[in-house]
Amino acid sequence: MSEWMRHTLNRFAQPVTSADPELLQVFNAQAAARGYTLSAGQQRVIQAMAERLVDRHKGKVRGLYIHGAVGRGKSWLLDGFYQALAEPGKRRLHFHDFFARLHQGMFRHRENADALAVTLDELLGDCRVLCFDEFHVHDIGDAMLLKRLFSALFERHILVVLTSNYAPAQLLPNPLYHERFLPVIELIGERMQVLELDGDTDFRSLPANHAHQRFTRGHYLYPGTCEQRERLNVPLPSPCTLHVNRRPLRALACEPGQVMFAFDDLCQQPTAVIDYLVLARDHPRWIIDGLDDLNECSLAAQQRFVNLVDVLYDQDIEVLVIGRKPLAESLDGGLADLMRTRSRLGQLQQVG
């Protein structure tokens, strides 16, 4: 991020009465460098980000909830905002990661009268601006904790800026649980500006974006013949056991810089986001072998695969997925979140 952009966002921490158009100019320049023009929706989000910083300086902390379809630039805007913000107490977290660590910490401090507060002290410290990417809710247990979490963040006067594929009212759509989640939706509406990022362009599909990501240099390979594997330097299976978060996990091969897993070992077994994060830290290239039709898998396995792709994309891991069918025939399933997975895997180079 340029010094000019840092200087611009520094100015938004000063006492001004309205958002300066220079921030929009900076993002326009960043977009132009990638070969595209900001959409009207992206411009509205940038304006809202600037206004939230202005209000924060005045002591009026109100969060920003950005939602919209996949590929509209939500994560790119959030990253640009975070990178440019001259605020020592800032954190940018993938929501999967944060929530997994929150659960672990609260279990560890379960004997404490306020395990949530102690855990937040550990995870966030003196955080004043918190950026969450890919916020969504699937589990009613998580949903009940979210009310306490958001209340605690707002009580600490933390500016929360988050992205989601879903409007607040669309979170936890299961009719068996949705009514119990309404207090969280109401709290978000009261304490955050909710803004839809719309538009017709899928910015992830633009060629200029591929040069900036390792993930998009990866491949989707089917049906995985010996000749195809040799061409892409897929190692021969040499099964081994990795120990991840004190649990054994079978790998098909593990070499310096890369790891290969069978789809079933990663997604048909009770693995978790925190496991993928640990593995992503140690292995910059992944091979996932044996993807078939997700529609034939349980919803739990589908959700693990969605979570896995989210982590690999967010951590910018080069990935090779070996399927038994073309990609378009492999990603059917009952989860709404699979639309994000289709978008992300659709950026891989397809070989078949």
Rank of each mutant, 00 (worst) to 15 (best):
A152Q: 12
A152I: 03
L153F: 02
F154P: 02
E155H: 10
E155S: 15
E155L: 12
E155Q: 07
R156H: 08
R156T: 04
H157N: 12
H157I: 14
H157E: 09
H157K: 15
I158D: 02
I158V: 10
I158P: 01
L159F: 04
L159H: 02
V160L: 14
V160D: 12
V160C: 11
V161E: 08
L162M: 13
L162V: 01
T163C: 06
T163Y: 01
T163S: 09
S164Y: 02
S164F: 00
N165F: 06
N165M: 09
Y166E: 04
Y166F: 05
Y166T: 09
Y166P: 01
A167N: 03
P168R: 02
P168K: 06
Q170L: 13
Q170M: 05
Q170W: 03
Q170P: 04
L171Q: 03
L171Y: 00
L172V: 09
L172Y: 01
P173H: 10
P173T: 09
P173E: 05
P173I: 03
N174L: 06
N174D: 15
P175H: 03
P175K: 12
P175A: 09
P175V: 05
P175Q: 15
P175C: 10
Y177L: 11
H178C: 08
H178E: 15
E179C: 04
E179L: 14
E179T: 09
F181E: 01
F181T: 03
L182V: 11
L182I: 14
P183Q: 14
P183K: 12
V184E: 04
E186Q: 11
I188Y: 00
G189Y: 14
G189H: 08
R191T: 04
M192K: 06
M192T: 05
Q193C: 05
Q193R: 07
Q193T: 08
L195K: 04
L195P: 00
L197E: 02
L197K: 01
L197T: 08
D198A: 10
D198H: 07
G199C: 14
G199Q: 03
D200K: 10
D200Y: 13
T201H: 00
T201G: 00
D202K: 03
D202N: 09
D202R: 04
F203P: 00
F203Y: 15
F203H: 11
R204E: 11
R204V: 08
R204C: 09
S205W: 11
S205Y: 10
S205T: 11
L206P: 12
L206H: 08
L206K: 12
L206E: 13
P207D: 14
A208F: 07
N209M: 06
N209D: 05
N209V: 15
H210A: 15
H210M: 04
A211M: 14
A211L: 14
H212L: 12
Q213Y: 13
Q213N: 07
R214E: 11
R214T: 15
F215R: 11
T216D: 11
